[in-house]
Design a protein around this nucleic acid. Structure first.
Lengths: 230, 230
DNA sequence: CGGAACATTGACCCATGTCAAGTGTCGTGG
DNA sequence: CCACGACACTTGACATGGGTCAATGTTCCG
């Protein structure tokens, strides 16, 4: 979820049994969902928290007329369903075949009542998501189409790097429509921007979903707002 | 902070000593800041959490070239500074004379280590903010200028109502620039939209900062996306 | 009373949306 | 193995909402 933000430093003062959550999740029930299948939808009672094991999930809200805002993508290691009170206020839909660990909320609450470190850890997890969401807001609220797309690619690249993958050659799990609904742009604008970046020689696109970042320096400049003639 | 979302239901399973936070804050040091004065700025070490007692505070991030995204306004009762790890990643600036209660983070962490209910309460507080931020994202990412401004006015109206004030006649504490930077619009567009709503007879503007909502029904329609010819 | 900050209004323009063809690409069934 | 259909993506032509720039009005405070 912390898609557009740098990694937060885990500065918990309390660091006793914080492994508990991972522990519990490791033994939790596994659930498989196919691409396009929902993990939960708006209005569902919040019964579980999920951790993505493999695959990817899009989290989004929709307006009455169908306009859609993806508020984040969840990749392996990310938690989803946290922070909802009573019922879900958004949809979680797999964008590729995905495996999830499921943790009952009742269990979680019971544990949190006993273990202060756990409550604190939940707090930190949500705080990181909040941070990521605010960064995304800065992007959709203030940046141009090119800046948005480049920020998105660089954020994805950083994530790949953190996970020990090649930060300059990766497969995007989501469609252009997903990227558009994430960044507040249309499919066409996303596509045109990709083409522009390729023409400029900053990226390569061997296939639609495969991206190779060729000129990091210039990309960083674009993300920072060059071409606004400084 | 939950500016653009409906009130979250306080469904804490654990509801023992949750008054502790309010208790502590009631006795905490009071700080006064003038309009335009900062409560904290980006990069400041996170030493305190604040609760707004009176006044209003804008929370915002800035891009290198000065573009600004306000991610939320904090009004009396709202907590600010929660969720930051180590150092602040945004600015908190009073938009009118404001009084704040200050709570040392060390104290807060110490309490959270003892009282599971407190940790859980912090979690819920941040979760509510996350929800509000995501709603705002839906607005800035997908809605037209008119929809954004109307959503903003209606959200403000609901807040007034919750606080026992007149939901249809209120004083906006922030400037047009603040509203623009909150909604991802320019000052001029905000101003023109206000004028348009006045011309349509949906609102009145006795002064620039005073708004009277005259035709709630039509405003609700606009916020929902009427005029997109349905 | 004067000036600074804020707000409004107008004219113009451009980035991005919209609409409409095309062009892959992939999976399925003949 | 190929043909077909369904999607996803790209590209082009055109339209427009909202940004930019500039002038004017308003409010408030010293």
């Amino acid at each position: 979820m912390q898609t557009l933000s740098r990694q937060a430093t885990p500065s918990s003062i309390i660091a006793s049994r914080v492994a508990d959550l991972d522990q519990t999740l490791a033994h939790a029930a596994l659930r498989r969902v196919e691409a396009k299948e929902f993990v939960f939808i708006e209005g569902d009672p919040t019964t579980h928290v999920f951790r993505v094991e493999t695959g990817a999930v899009a989290l989004y809200k929709v307006l009455a007329d169908g306009r859609r805002q993806i508020v984040g993508f969840a990749y392996p290691g990310d938690l989803i369903g946290l922070g909802a009170q009573g019922e879900h206020v958004m949809n979680a839909q797999a964008i590729k075949p995905t495996r999830l660990r499921c943790l009952g909320l009742a269990t979680l609450h019971r544990s949190a009542a006993q273990d202060p470190a756990l409550g604190f850890k939940l707090y930190e997890a949500v705080a990181r998501e909040l941070e990521a969401t605010r960064d995304l807001m800065l992007t959709t609220g203030q940046r141009s189409a090119t800046e948005r797309v480049v920020s998105f690619l660089l954020a994805f690249s950083r994530r790949a790097e953190r996970n020990g993958l090649d930060p300059c050659d990766f497969e995007l799990p989501m469609t252009r429509a997903d990227i558009g609904d994430f960044l507040g742009l249309t499919i066409e604008t996303v596509s045109r921007t990709f083409t522009k970046l390729r023409t400029l020689g900053f990226i390569e696109l061997p296939q639609a979903s495969r991206v190779k970042l060729v000129d990091l320096d210039h990309l960083e400049d674009l993300a920072a707002g060059a071409s606004n003639q400084d």
